[in-house]
Design a protein around this nucleic acid. Structure first.
Lengths: 237, 237
DNA sequence: ACTGCCAAGATTGCATACGATTTGCACATC
DNA sequence: GATGTGCAAATCGTATGCAATCTTGGCAGT
């Protein structure tokens, strides 16, 4: 486990450090710096962030709630290893929620928001032109941020939190099951959605969003790894 | 704070006791045995369930994540006191999610499920015929259980968890802002939804569900109590 | 009599300590 | 050589202790 954000997380927060740790681990997980299945021992996490097990434990507990880590009693916490079924449910949930978010966002979005979105899309674009795993991770994250900003604009904090979780888990799934470079497609779709939004055409934006989610999911290879860890081990042996 | 389920929660769980405590507190909150604003001190909770502050704290942390309690740093945890705005967002979220759940449920529901649902509706009915706050609480809970069972049938564990949270918070909101006996209306609506479901008519079931949610929200009085607790105290004085 | 300050009490935040459970390895046995 | 058993290391679950922070009551000064 090597998490470079260690210091970044530990200093700027005079308050709840467990929140900072949660954030750092969260980023590490969705950036895929922490691979699924990685063990997150309380001792280790605590040592890395220079806190006691108590606060490390709290952070892990939060992540467990978000579905990013799975804890087994008396065994420890592990970075979640989503099954294809989970992946399908995640995207099914997104297909349900995101059109609603679009509908709310189209009512509330301001010019300043649109400006901000354009900046965000440019950032995506810049990552898109680079190669290598780091750029790909950054792209996945930036892509997720687009959806998160949308949820933020929609103005429903509950849905926003749901999307927070869904996007994070999606990133994990994409990193796990994603094939190559369809993300470029995703980027242009973000653009189209924003255009529809700017035009005030919620219907079209929602339809585009559904399409977009379909595309993301279609890019996944959810056939393999169907079995559980046990089966995997057996077939691999 | 007097929670009678104390022993029930503490004994049957050889495993994680904090989960049991969370469940007990959860029930107490949505049953309105714990009024919004009630302070939940770690010491007190721990003493009630005969555990240390550590595990009590974990339970409170979980409830905070669910939005049922609010914690203020260095001040403690309090039963959540949803604002009208929060209430609106809760119901907006439900309007978005529940039709989707219906759509999934209509595909997967079995005869056995329908049987189970009928039993559930009968239980609701029995509470409906009684009077008194206890019966009303039980009715609210039973009514929520209907929606939860629906989510369970839909087979998407993520949406199920979202609904878990939304229903719990709805119960709190209804108890806070609800007027009198529109719940009877709600019951018949449950029945109509189940009928549509049994007939395999997802469209109608979804439409009925939307109507149902609208009715529930329409029964709320979300105008008053706009201000914080302070103003409340002042106007009451 | 009212306002501002200070100290005592209470409660949380965090660290550490101890017991329980699991895992892996070594050793004895077949 | 393979297998089963037992011990030891590691890790989690929980309790408790101490420091920091907030609240509250009283006291002095104006």
């Amino acid at each position: 486990m090597n998490i470079s954000e260690k210091i970044t997380a530990g200093e700027t927060t005079p308050e709840d450090r467990s929140l900072a740790i949660r954030e750092a681990l969260r980023n590490a997980i969705i950036d895929r710096r922490l691979a699924p299945g990685t063990k997150l021992s309380e001792n280790e996490v605590g040592a890395l962030f220079d806190v006691s097990r108590t606060v490390a434990r709290a952070a892990l507990q939060m992540l467990t709630f978000e579905g990013l880590v799975k804890t087994e009693r008396n065994r420890g916490a592990f970075v979640s290893n989503p099954t294809p079924e989970e992946a399908r449910q995640i995207f099914a949930s997104r297909r349900l929620i995101e059109p609603g978010i679009i509908a709310a966002a189209v009512e509330r979005i301001t010019d300043a928001d649109i400006e901000e979105f354009r900046r965000q899309l440019q950032e995506e674009e810049s990552y898109m032109n680079e190669r290598g795993p780091a750029a790909r991770r950054a792209e996945i994250k930036a892509s997720g941020d687009f959806h998160l900003m949308l949820a933020s604009v929609a103005g429903n904090v509950i849905l926003q939190r749901f999307m927070d979780e869904l996007v994070a888990r999606s990133s994990l799934v994409i990193a796990l099951y994603g094939r190559t470079g369809v993300s470029s497609c995703g980027h242009s779709e973000h653009f189209a959605i924003l255009d529809a939004l700017q035009a005030g055409d919620g219907e079209r934006a929602a339809a585009l969003m559904l399409h977009h989610i379909d595309h993301i999911e279609a890019d996944l290879d959810l056939q393999i790894k169907q079995g559980l860890g046990l089966k995997d081990a057996l077939t691999l042996a």
